[in-house]
């Protein structure tokens, strides 16, 4: 069983596909591996896509980045890399791909998190007063986020994705202490804007 660790490595062993020792042939192992990657893809593609989109601001590129990250996961697992948490791993790869992509385009992308720059929307919210409040809330977040540094924003988003400080540190390749410090500053700044 230990001879093919990639098939066994995943978050909490969620995706154990049968007994690995049954995988006799190369083809069978390949098939299993593809299956494992596909399961991860199904589970994680949406959050990864959203995260990549928030950095590169292009649906096409975010899609490519997402797919690329999972294809790289396949390559890594195939080469026997020991991945302790697939989720952090994929986010880290997607983060780097998205950052590189954004850098390649050489201009600073405005951070908008209210979704208003995206398309002609036709939300029909029944209660105008409530809609007004929501709008106002959105704008408050928007203003708050604009005061943050990039790393502060990434930390907050990854935290909102449910990662712990240690995992965020792995994704952003900074120390855990750095993440905690960044997060507490980010939260204090954001707090000022939203209350």
């Amino acid at each position: 069983m230990a001879s093919i660790p990639p098939l066994m490595e995943s978050d909490g062993g969620l995706y154990l596909v049968g007994d690995a020792s049954c995988a006799h042939s190369v083809a069978e192992k390949q098939r299993r591996l593809a299956q494992v990657v596909e399961l991860h893809f199904e589970e994680l593609r949406r959050p990864v896509y959203s995260y990549a989109f928030s950095i590169c601001r292009s649906p096409e590129r975010a899609e490519e980045i997402t797919q690329d990250a999972f294809l790289r996961l396949h390559t890594s697992l195939q080469s026997g890399e020991n991945i302790s948490s697939v989720r952090s791993w994929v986010f880290r790869v997607a983060h780097n791909l998205a950052i590189n992509d954004a850098k390649k385009r050489r201009f600073e992308l405005p951070c908008r998190m209210d979704g208003q720059d995206i398309a002609m929307r036709s939300d029909n919210l029944p209660d105008p007063e409530q809609q007004m409040l929501r709008e106002e809330r959105k704008n408050q977040f928007q203003r708050g986020l604009e005061t943050l540094t990039e790393n502060q924003r990434y930390c907050l988003q990854l935290r909102a994705e449910g990662f712990q400080a240690k995992q965020i540190a792995e994704i952003l390749k900074i120390s855990r202490g750095g993440v905690v410090d960044t997060l507490q500053r980010a939260m204090k700044r954001l707090r000022k804007a939203i209350v």
Binding site: Y49, S50, S54, P59, E60, A62, M113, D114, Q116, I118
Partner: peptide, 10 residues
């Protein structure tokens, strides 16, 4: 708010 507002992957 943010995630539902982003366009789907083309």
């Amino acid at each position: 708010v943010f995630k539902p507002s982003i366009p789907p992957p083309p």
